[in-house]
Each structure stands twice: as C-alpha cells, then as structure tokens.
C-alpha cells in the first residue's frame, strides 16, 4: 500500500498528518449531519468539512506537489479561497430559506419576523447596545 513516487520522511509525515486531520474533521461533520435533530443544528455540522477539513487537505496537497515539482505550487489555494468564499453564501441562503419557510408555516421553533428592537424605533437612532 505505497504511493508510486519517492518522497522523504520529512515530507511524508506532515502531509499524512494534515490528510488525516482533514479527512476525520470532514467525517465528524457528516456524522453531526446525521445525528443532530434540528435543521438549524445540522447547518453547523458541514462547516467542519468546509473550513479546516478542506483547509488541511489543501495544505497537504500544496506541500506534496511543491516537493514533487520542486517549485512552490499554490494552485490548490484557489480551491481553498473558492470554498471559503462560496460556503458562507450557500449556507446563508439555505439558512434564510429555512427561516422563511418556517416563518411562513408559523413554526414555534424560530423567532418571529420582528425580533428586538421593534419597528417603531426605526426612525430613532439605534442604541449602542
């Protein structure tokens, strides 16, 4: 069960460590996706995979390919940046969609449309918390 290219130990160890960290964080995230009961709780679980799960695997890939091609290889960072920038957009949209659907059904689990402060205060200045 060996890889087809030659690498020294000081490359193999950090790459392996980052790979295992990333893979098991991702697995933990999906275990949470299955185990948690409420949708809003489940929304937190996949962020494990999309933050350091992806991050660690991308770092491992960067270390390995920088060694193999004997030049700094950073194109994996594109995936890192892409996932970092797009995940908030998708999860925000999903969260808002779920909130909208729950509100329109009148679910008691979610806060109603007018969370504090009430809309009559609109014109006055916001109190500085």
């Amino acid at each position: 069960m060996s890889v087809e290219y030659d690498i020294p130990l000081w490359i193999a160890l950090p790459v392996s460590a980052f790979l295992l960290i990333g893979a098991f964080l991702t697995l933990t995230g999906t275990i949470g996706l299955i185990r948690l009961r409420i949708f809003y709780d489940r929304l937190h679980a996949p962020t494990l995979g999309s933050s350091w799960g992806t991050g660690a695997i991308v770092i491992a890939s960067m270390i390995l390919f920088s060694y193999l091609e004997s030049r700094p290889v950073v194109h994996e960072i594109l995936i890192g940046i892409f996932v970092t920038v797009t995940t908030p957009v998708t999860f925000m949209l999903l969260g808002r969609a779920a909130l909208y659907r729950d509100r329109s059904e009148g679910s008691p689990l979610v806060p109603p449309m007018d969370v504090a402060p009430p809309p009559s205060k609109e014109t006055t200045a916001e109190p500085a918390s």
Binding site: G29, D41, H44, A45, S51, P88, M92, G95, E122, E126
Partner: peptide, 27 residues
C-alpha cells in the same frame, strides 16, 4: 458574514439592513 459562517458553531441567518439587526444561530 464570511467570518461568522466559516466559523463552525455560528451561522448567519438573517440581516435586516433597515434596522441593522443580525440574526445568528449559535450551536
């Protein structure tokens, strides 16, 4: 929004730009 969403444990749900109130879900 990027910071809050990419941190596990906090999720950005809604922001009302008229009143400037942010609704978060905390794990």
């Amino acid at each position: 929004a990027v910071i809050i969403t990419s941190t596990p444990g906090t999720a950005w749900l809604d922001y009302s730009d008229r009143r400037g109130v942010l609704l978060l879900h905390i794990f």
